[in-house]
Structure formats: C-alpha cells, structure tokens
C-alpha cells in the first residue's frame, strides 16, 4: 500500500551561492522556509518538482522535503532541513544572520 502523503515543501540550492531555497506561493523561489508553499496534494507537489527540474538555469538539485504548517508559514520536520533554514551551528554564518531569520 502506498504511504500516505505528508505535506512537503519544494526545495533546492541556488545555482550561484548554493544557498537553500524554497518554492513560494507565487511560483518563484524564496530563501526563507516560512515563505515556502506547503504542498498538501501529492500530484501538485510532484508536478511542481517536475517543473523545477526543467528550470536548471537558476537552481540545483530540487527535491520535496517534509514540512508542517506553523504560525508564520511552513516549518521543517527533519533536523537536516531545520539546519538548512539556519546555517552551521559553529559560526554565525548563513541564513541565521543573512535572513534575520527567526530560528525554527
């Protein structure tokens, strides 16, 4: 039996900076996880992934990652995805300083 679909965000790395980016509601890319579109429909999510794979000019390695709804937008589920929203833990580098990002 197919596993039940869990909500996802579509994420990738930016071609030039390599930074984590997320598909937002307007069909563009945001560097902020909370601005990501939360896909609750499997077919829609997979269609968005296929579309992203066809736009290789700006992004690298798109994939669907588990996420859940939060008060200010989607939140990551897996700790790896949580790290991608912040940056490394040993230095104050990456999104945690560049985004003025609220830690999730």
């Amino acid at each position: 039996m197919a596993r039940e679909f869990t909500p996802k965000v579509l994420t990738a790395n930016h071609l030039l900076e390599g930074d984590a980016i997320y598909r937002d509601g307007s069909g563009g890319w945001s560097r902020n996880h909370q601005e990501a579109k939360l896909f609750t429909d499997q077919r829609e999510a997979e269609a968005a992934l296929v579309a992203a794979l066809a736009e290789p000019g700006t992004i690298v390695g798109p994939y669907l990652a588990d996420a859940k709804a939060g008060p200010n937008g989607p939140l990551p589920v897996h700790f790896r995805e949580a790290f991608r929203t912040r940056g490394p833990s040993n230095y104050n580098h990456g999104k945690q300083v560049e985004l003025n990002h609220v830690s999730v």
Partner: peptide, 21 residues
C-alpha cells in the same frame, strides 16, 4: 545542465553542500 556540469565541477574539487558550495 547540472547533470552535465556536476562531474566537471567535481573534477575541480567543487562540491555543493548544505548551505553553499
């Protein structure tokens, strides 16, 4: 494309990691 470029960048020591190259 990235599929074409990836082996070329790896031959020059360039990886894509979690937050950056």
């Amino acid at each position: 494309t990235e599929d074409e470029f990836k082996p070329l960048r790896l031959m020059n020591g360039l990886y894509l990691q979690l937050h950056a190259y």
